[in-house]
């Protein structure tokens, strides 16, 4: 059942063939591009640093989208939930410097993300409004709100750009390992721990079982005594809370303030991460790392004269090819 069909192989060859042709078209040898891609993401200490830094938020938001997906929900709103989480976490950390403030800041960011997703869950469960529509709308509201707040009430005293003040260094998440320019923030181990927690929760608890049943076949789940409306609301809220947590950690570990353009679309890349992850939470780990490395590597490609659009194309192609492998229809026999 797991052997590759010739159709998938042809698809992969055609897809990567197109990219190679496009590269040749702008005068870059595909092999040079590939080696630069690898060097740019994993070649030096600094590049490793950047790759892992990019991987961390993808890991947590990927997990957020993943858990909603298990419940049969497409949470397109991770981006907005991340922004709201980051914004609230920044505000709390600014008010309360120090360790306690940092803990409160993380909690506040998590709760804010969850609350931001809650309406989408409620509308889906009780009014059958599609979560894709509602979460996209909530994304736009979050983005507008964030810009409004950093331009107004939360605007910092220094600098000209629309951003908040930098939070006190006493609130920063520490690095657990340092070999300059390589820094490993505590954020990454926390993210990996979260993967473990979610993986165990899904596999070994009744609530996890019922969440997956709801996603796999809501009718059968309901017949089996699962309260699918509650599960839907709960899954959406947990998903939003994780995305909010990602935002809070992004502030405390890497950014240290909130500004317009805070997220480079982590919440959207998270959709790809979760799709690649497949049925197990552990799949989020390699998927997030692959996205992180590609994001960093394709930035380096620009030095070779490869436009940013083309690297986006590469990423998209990889997702489509992977999805074609993973979501191949399994032939049933009766």
């Amino acid at each position: 059942m797991n052997s590759l069909g010739w159709k998938q192989i042809v698809l992969a060859l055609v897809a990567f063939g197109c990219i190679a042709l496009a590269l040749v078209g702008i005068g870059v040898m595909p092999f040079d591009a590939l080696s630069e891609l690898i060097r740019g993401s994993l070649g030096t200490k600094n590049n490793w640093n950047e790759t892992l830094k990019h991987t961390t938020p993808l890991l947590i938001t990927g997990l957020a989208v993943f858990i909603a997906l298990r419940a049969g929900l497409f949470n397109i709103g991770a981006e907005g939930q991340l922004l709201v989480g980051a914004l609230v976490a920044t505000a709390v950390a600014l008010k309360m410097p120090g360790l306690v403030g940092a803990v409160l800041s993380v909690m506040a960011g998590t709760i804010a993300g969850g609350l931001w997703a809650l309406p989408a869950g409620l509308i889906k469960a009780y009014r059958n409004g599609h979560e894709v529509i509602t979460t996209i709308m909530l994304n736009n509201i979050a983005a507008a709100l964030a810009i409004g707040l950093v331009a107004g009430p939360l605007r910092g005293g220094t600098g000209l750009s629309t951003s908040t003040d930098v939070i006190s260094e006493s609130s920063w998440l520490p690095n657990v390992y340092q070999d300059l320019p390589f820094r490993l923030s505590l954020a990454l181990p926390i993210a990996i721990l979260l993967v473990w927690v979610i993986a165990v929760w899904i596999k070994k608890t009744v609530a996890g079982f019922e969440l997956c049943a709801t996603g796999a076949n809501p009718k059968a789940a309901e017949t089996a005594g699962v309260e699918i409306k509650r599960v839907t609301v709960r899954a959406m809220t947990i998903s939003g809370a994780l995305a909010g947590l990602a935002g809070a950690i992004q502030v405390l570990a890497y950014e240290h303030n909130f500004y317009a353009g805070f997220s480079s679309g982590f919440g959207f890349d998270a959709l790809g991460v979760a799709l690649l992850a497949g049925a197990s939470a552990w799949g989020v780990l390699p998927a997030a790392f692959a996205f992180g490395a590609l994001a960093k590597g394709t930035t380096s490609l620009q030095a070779l004269g490869v436009p940013k659009g083309l690297s986006g194309l590469l990423l998209g192609t990889i997702i489509i090819v992977f999805a074609a492998y993973r979501y191949r229809k399994v032939k049933s026999h009766d």
């Binding site: 070994k204 608890t205 009744v206 079982f209 049943a213």
Partner: peptide, 16 residues
Amino acid sequence: TLGLQRIPPLTNGPWS
């Protein structure tokens, strides 16, 4: 397990 997921001995508190 489907439909029996909350019944001991299949569960032990919240754990399956």
